[in-house]
Structures are given as C-alpha cells and as structure tokens.
Amino acid sequence: MRATERAGRRHGTRGAVAAVLVAAVGLLCVVLLLPLTASTTDSAREITLVIRNMAFYLEGGTEPNPTIRVRAGEEVRFTVLNRDPGFAHNFVVDAWDLETPFIETEASTTVVVRAPARPGRGEYVCTPHGKMMRGVIEVVGGD
C-alpha cells in the first residue's frame, strides 16, 4: 500500500487511477485467498496430523502415513503438529498446490483449503523427508 500511495502523489490523476486499480486487484486477491487463509465457518472438516518418528499419524492413530480421505469440494482444516524432537517438517500436497511452512518441534500450523472438486488420488509428503514421510490423500465423490 505504501508504494501505491507514493505513486499517487507523484503522478496525480493517472496515479490515483492506478492506485484504485491496484487496490481493486489487491481486494480481489484477498477475496480469492480468503478460503485458503482466513478462519472459516465451523463446517470445515478438521484433520489433525501429528508427526513423530519421521511419520505422519492421524491424531490418536497408530498407522504411519495413513491414507487421508476427504470429500470432493469440501473445506478442510489441516492442523499439523510436530512432535518430532530435533526435526523441522512440513506438509505438502502437490496436487492441491498446498504447502505449509516448516514446523519446528512442538509447534503446529493450521491451513484451511478446499478439496479439489473432482475425485482422485494425490500424495502428501514432507519435502526433506519425502522417502519416509509420504502417504496418499484421496478425494472421493461428494454425497
């Protein structure tokens, strides 16, 4: 915003038009990104993943790197908790264009995304430990 204001002062009317345009584009971006970042309605599906011993687990689960199933088009809130001392991990689903920042030990990150509209199978991984921390994420038909 600061750059826009400066441009406005320097170029008068043309600058003001540009500022409005930039602001409009910015607003559009915010609206588009809202479902990805902002807190959403309570209807979002909650999936909590706990990382320990270089594997993902569903909260309370015992199966390493389990298959995660979601419904097509549903809103999903992933919380990823790192309980792996000495490691930084992340959670990446290429097919969904989803990538969390690195999560330090005993920290967690939450990301809200909308599942793809069409059923299919993708993979989730931790980037630096992708040979061991890798599982299937499955999108099934909505009902």
């Binding site: 011993n53 270089m54 001392p85 000495g86 490691f87 630096p128 430990h129 061991m132």
Partner: peptide, 23 residues
C-alpha cells in the same frame, strides 16, 4: 537404515546440528 539431519542435545541445553543414522 537412513541418514537424516537432526538437532540433538549433547549437554544440557547444548544442541548440535547432527547428521545421524536413524535419527
């Protein structure tokens, strides 16, 4: 067996950026 980078505690409060086998 796998090699992996890990921060390990070698003395109280002293962490070492180790390269480890199986962590």
């Amino acid at each position: 067996l796998f090699a992996v980078d890990r921060d390990i505690e070698i003395a109280p409060g002293v962490f070492f950026q180790a390269w480890t086998y199986n962590g």
